[in-house]
Design a protein around this nucleic acid. Sequence first.
DNA 1: GCAAAAGTGTTGACTATACACCCATGC
DNA 2: GCATGGGTGTATAGTCAACACTTTTGC
Lengths: 238, 238
Amino acid sequence: MDYDKYAHEPFAVTVDLAVLTLAEGALHVLLIERGQEPYAGHRALPGGFVHPDESAETAARRELAEETGLSDVSGLHLEQLRTYSEPGRDPRMRVVSVAFAALLPDPPEPHGGGDAAEARWIPYDRTGPLAFDHDRILADAHERVGAKFEYTCLATAFCPPEFTLGELQQVYETVWGTALDRPNFRRKVLATPGFVEAVPGAARLTGGRGKPAALYRAGPATALHPPLLRPSPEGRPA
Amino acid sequence: MDYDKYAHEPFAVTVDLAVLTLAEGALHVLLIERGQEPYAGHRALPGGFVHPDESAETAARRELAEETGLSDVSGLHLEQLRTYSEPGRDPRMRVVSVAFAALLPDPPEPHGGGDAAEARWIPYDRTGPLAFDHDRILADAHERVGAKFEYTCLATAFCPPEFTLGELQQVYETVWGTALDRPNFRRKVLATPGFVEAVPGAARLTGGRGKPAALYRAGPATALHPPLLRPSPEGRPA
DNA sequence: GCAAAAGTGTTGACTATACACCCATGC
DNA sequence: GCATGGGTGTATAGTCAACACTTTTGC
């Protein structure tokens, strides 16, 4: 490799964030509204430049804190998706963007404290056409999260520190868009050592009525063996 | 986002390639030997700068063709791994690298036609300490490929156009480092529609002796439902 | 015949699914 | 009491791992 610092046209390196959360039983995404061309009036994923002294991961955490006003982003799940580098993806200049998916439990009210326009939570299926290639990034994020639910313990990242198994099941059902059998889901989760840990003696009413549900914390496990497969879209013939 | 083309220090954007193949029943990696500081004398992953008019994927294909002299890289599997962007990863300047994993069947003799030093196939477990953070990139590539073998049809990317089930099984065993039961492996593969397709009437002797094995082609399927899980390292207690 | 490699059969254990059923709480 | 949501039991079908066995080839 031949390194010459000024031999090549400079690239701008940015991060784009697909910040996902669950609210009112639906998947929501954090989006900003663009005020300027190009794509004025369109929504876009939050993001920004990577600073000279920080990694893409650090930049993603910083941008997320700026957009949401959430300084305590220690417990959130931040995952690098992939890098989008097609030459024409930003009409103004050459921008290579490292995309991240971030998962939050209870959505904090975002106050547009950063340099971007105010960020708002938008239902996933009402995002409309986004700016740049952000539609694709968002779709990739959703697919990645859905796939990781099958063989990792990632789903607890959408839950508050203490949660019921019914809430955890709703997370799966919302992200996958399918209904699951409650007794079987329960057994599957409890049979995986380290997925969840019981909070002794604690219980909570969920719907105002019914038996109070036992509370659980996220356990130390990260992988799910055997996996919890979502019902296959295509019925497998015998 | 505030775009100012010259407001930020330029980043160099490169690609690094973990090119994997199987030879003599062992996993091999394509590596170059560095002649200059830093890391002179160390081996490194092939790679190079992304040109202003190409995407990272295009750059990866171009570099691969240059290093291996293989112009027919249409059938190879090229997969983006992740992007490595830690500020200190190259001591000379700020380099953000998009890493790829590439899978090749029969290894072509690489002739160092590119700008890099000659590239050579090195057994995976004899790579020694690599330059920069390439040890980590290589380990990430191996882990990713191993994981993808469980739930995708990726393994055929290591096979020639026509192959036997025994050869396919060797691919799994070599990448995972575990032995598999032949009858069960066979059933599993054949039970997955579209994984492999029989080549009618064709057969080949593998070890010089024994019954000639039927030949198969890679099928149209990409996903594996249900997955083919590698034996879990930790025994699951009852 | 014998060794080697491919391919088939079988069995027992485990797992998943689809339910029916019981428990605790608010109204 | 009854609706609602949490939690348990179970029977059946399906799947998987282990291993015995048959087939086809070269020597």
